[in-house]
């Protein structure tokens, strides 16, 4: 078995119009910048995909990564907890113009909805958001005398995730807090595509340290020395680079 893909273009080739795509990362940490940029390249070259629903904790920062994807007009709907950042103008302008839909989800509920999607649990109850605007229209039930809000699973056609080491069976490790949503999104997507900083032979990753077991991963591509969104933004980078 070999889940490695020849290049970034091949990694994003299967994403079709209207699909739901989970994109890993919390702010810049764990953001799969190269996979996102490959998706932008494909859209510019072919006009597809369009009309995506994207699941991410945030809504992009500056003009690279997720912000650049949104700026291309590829994203019809965003499901996230915190659509603000140091430079959120791309999302903010489209949202206030009514050109992108937002489903705002509390952060822990977002994580658990994704986990539930990956674990085959269609709904669960949480105390989070009870009595607030974000619980409106949702089923409430009491357990042990306290009210809880019913939340539904969240699943995706694709996940785009950044990991540290990966082997060709799809076993993954992550780097520090870049782990965040990665393991959950790999579980919840039909096809989880992972960019790894280092592709290694099976047996290299100590089984005790595998964070995402390969069963949750469908494709890997090696991106050595991946870009950090924060570094790109500090350099005022824009993707795609404007033609001079």
């Amino acid at each position: 078995m070999d889940k490695t893909l020849p290049d970034l273009a091949a990694a994003v080739a299967g994403i079709e119009d209207g699909m739901t795509v989970m994109i890993g990362g919390f702010g810049g940490s764990g953001a799969p910048i190269e996979l996102i940029h490959a998706l932008i390249d494909r859209h510019i070259a072919t006009g597809h995909p369009t009309n995506l629903t994207v699941v991410n904790n945030n809504a992009g920062n500056g003009h690279v990564g997720l912000a650049a994807l949104i700026e291309q007009g590829i994203v019809a709907k965003l499901i996230c907890s915190f659509p603000r950042s140091a430079d959120p103008r791309v999302f903010t302008d489209l949202y206030l113009a009514g050109k992108i839909e937002l489903e705002l989800v509390p952060q822990g509920t977002l994580a658990e909805r994704i986990r539930a999607g990956g674990a085959g649990i269609p709904a669960f109850y949480t105390p989070t958001s009870y009595g607030t605007d974000l619980a409106r229209g949702k089923k409430i039930e009491e357990f042990e005398g306290r009210p809880y809000v019913q939340e539904r699973w969240l699943k995706a056609d694709y996940a785009l995730v950044k990991a540290d080491k990966g082997d060709r069976l799809g076993n993954l490790t992550y780097r520090m807090a870049a782990r965040n949503f990665g393991p959950l999104m790999c579980m919840a997507a039909k096809t989880a595509i992972v960019q790894v900083s280092q592709l290694v032979e099976p047996g290299t990753i100590d089984p005790e340290t595998v964070i995402t077991p390969g069963i949750f991963v469908q494709g890997l591509v090696e991106v050595a020395n991946p870009a950090q969104e924060e570094d790109l933004n500090r350099a005022n980078a824009v993707y795609p680079e404007p033609v001079q």
């Binding site: 907890s81 915190f82 659509p83 903010t92 949202y95 937002l102 509390p106 952060q107 989070t128 607030t132």
Partner: peptide, 11 residues
Amino acid sequence: KGVPAVGGAMD
């Protein structure tokens, strides 16, 4: 008004 953002506050 503006863009709503909740993050982890409700959790």
